[in-house]
Amino acid sequence: MTQSIEKTKIIENVLWLRLAQILVNEKYKKGDFKIPIHLALGHESIAVAVNQSMVSKDSLILSHRNIHYNLARMGTIKEELDEYYLNDNGLAGGHLGSMNLSNPKKNIPYTSSILGNNISVATGYALGNKMKNNNAIVILITGDGAIEEGSLWESLLFMRSNDISVMIIVENNQWSLGTKIEERRCKINLDHLSNSLNIDYKALNGNDPFHYIKTLSEFRNKSIKNKCPVIIEVHLSTLGYWYMETQEYPTGKFINYHAGPAPEVELEEYPIIEPNIKDPLHVLEGYLSKEELIKISSEQLKILKSELL
């Protein structure tokens, strides 16, 4: 019974997070925001899993694409929206906007818009935990673009040399701005890189929030017990891409979603974007029937709308 309630709660969280982002997207499409926002449609499972796996003194350090983690940690949308409007009553009093949005009250002490910048700050934060004997972990969110920066190597060396617990989550969506990995660099085998420093590595695929929660909890405990960083590479897709018709591309040119509104994503009662494994909502259909998911989605939408009334 308890397990069933927890399962429903996780599913509610994933649906709520999708709907919350779509509500932001609706306002974005109307031109409501002056600031750039990087939506994370398709990243809901890992965000819910990270939130779920955090315990009291754990900290989360984020990057420019952070809406999913901030929303998952808050569980409400209004303050974050107010921050995007740069209102005084926003989450950070309108001082941080989107790409630097942190929330110390929810254990998000730092968020950086600069690629790779947050890796060393997370290392320092974790060294502070060691000094205080906190039995806690720092969860660092980075991506396949940021791991190209030298700060990853430098920080791994420092963490490994000084027995520091950090769980590094690499969101690998294959894209950095408008370039795919194969358009900009050779392959990075993070497993081999981790192995060279005797660091545990795990690849996650498939957008299953329950599998993600289990793995993150295991690796969190392992990192704390072994006083060592761990690396989790999450293969995912940032949904919301679209096709632009031009003279050169009459059938449409593929535009990968990076930032800004996702023009073709609409607010619907059941907000699935792609009927395949790239979409965490599709994966939920392995746990509940579509009818049940639609019912939950409709309830979550009501909750969100009532908060915004």
């Binding site: 002490p109 320092g124 934060y125 205080k132 030298g150």
Partner: peptide, 28 residues
């Protein structure tokens, strides 16, 4: 009485570490 650390040659990270420590209320 606190930590004294001979570090690797990683000046970018070493600068960021000081700020990370600051965020965690630890002086360095």
């Amino acid at each position: 009485s606190g930590f004294t650390i001979n570090t690797p040659n990683s000046e970018n990270t070493l600068t960021g570490i000081g700020f990370g420590l600051m965020l965690n209320s630890t002086s360095s």
